[in-house]
């Protein structure tokens, strides 16, 4: 009964716009700024964690989320919508991939799956678009064989591409995507979303260099946040997730040959404080 009379709320205006999507983007642009920077050996996702009251227990809420062991996500916009998307992303990474291939989806595949969920909300009856933009960061193990001969033949080429891994599933490495309420997605080297996205991106354009290392990327991420942050900056008001080397200590066991820990992990408040003191 319910779906018999459920028409899509997102309908074209005479000028060819879908204003519902533009409204959703407005919601994103009022949201707290988030940013992501891709380095040669990893990616950093960062955001500000704002509390409306000093009574809120900051440590129990979280804006940066793990989706698969190698993929993490952050948002700007509406928190409740984001949590729904995190649930759906985690679910689809299993039903649509791991349960079929017994391996986690590559970053681009997950991004496409999440983008499809968001697009469907712009065309289905009885629903509204999600009021969030996402930054999705992940690491892929490449499928191209690592040719030792090739690297030995051109030792000077080694410097030009610090790891040779430029992201994507063929060569492997880090990739960073933005997904919007319309369901469109873009790959970035570094970007920002939310309230101060424009100024943050201008800042990142100045600071970003090719061949950046993860440590530098975290540094730049904090500097960028510092430009836009409204309150105090400390381990409890900044949230950071990184995609880096495999964190074998997070596996919960050791001694299994070939087992690899998750590459995505959130930095603890203490770790963030340490970065901040060195800023």
């Amino acid at each position: 009964m319910a779906d018999r009379y459920s028409f899509s709320l997102t309908t074209f205006s005479p000028s060819g716009k879908l204003v519902q999507i533009e409204y959703a983007l407005n919601a994103v642009n009022q949201g707290v700024t988030s940013l992501g920077i891709k380095a040669t050996n990893g990616i950093v996702l960062a955001t500000e964690k704002k509390s409306s009251s000093p009574l809120i227990d900051a440590s129990s809420s979280s804006k940066v989320s793990l989706i698969t062991p190698n993929i993490g996500m952050v948002y700007s916009g509406m928190g409740p919508d984001y949590r729904v998307l995190v649930d759906k992303a985690r679910k689809v990474s299993h039903t649509g991939y791991k349960r079929i291939y017994n391996e986690y989806p590559p970053t681009r595949i997950l991004v496409q799956d999440v983008a499809r969920v968001m697009q469907e909300a712009t065309q289905s009856g009885g629903v509204r678009p999600y009021g969030v933009s996402l930054l999705i960061a992940g690491w892929d193990d490449g499928i191209e064989p690592e040719t030792a001969a090739e690297e030995a033949a051109a030792p000077d080429a080694e410097k030009k591409r610090a790891t040779g891994k430029t992201g994507g599933v063929l060569k492997g490495g880090p990739s960073l995507y933005q997904v919007d309420p319309s369901g469109s997605y873009f790959p970035w080297k570094a970007t920002a979303i939310g309230k101060s996205a424009t100024s943050a991106k201008t800042f990142l354009e100045k600071r970003y260099t090719e061949g950046l290392e993860l440590e530098d990327a975290v540094h730049i991420a904090l500097l960028t946040l510092k430009e836009t942050i409204e309150g105090e900056m400390n381990g409890d008001t900044v949230e950071i997730g990184i995609v880096g080397p495999p964190a074998d200590h997070l596996m919960g066991y050791e001694g299994v040959e070939g087992a690899q820990g998750p590459r995505f992990r959130k930095l603890s408040p203490q770790e963030i404080e340490d970065y901040l003191t060195n800023l």
Partner: peptide, 16 residues
């Protein structure tokens, strides 16, 4: 995925 399927992945696909 713009790539060939590996024998291992194929094995899991057949299994599921």
């Amino acid at each position: 995925e713009e790539r060939q399927i590996s024998p291992q992945t194929m094995a899991n696909l057949v299994s599921s």
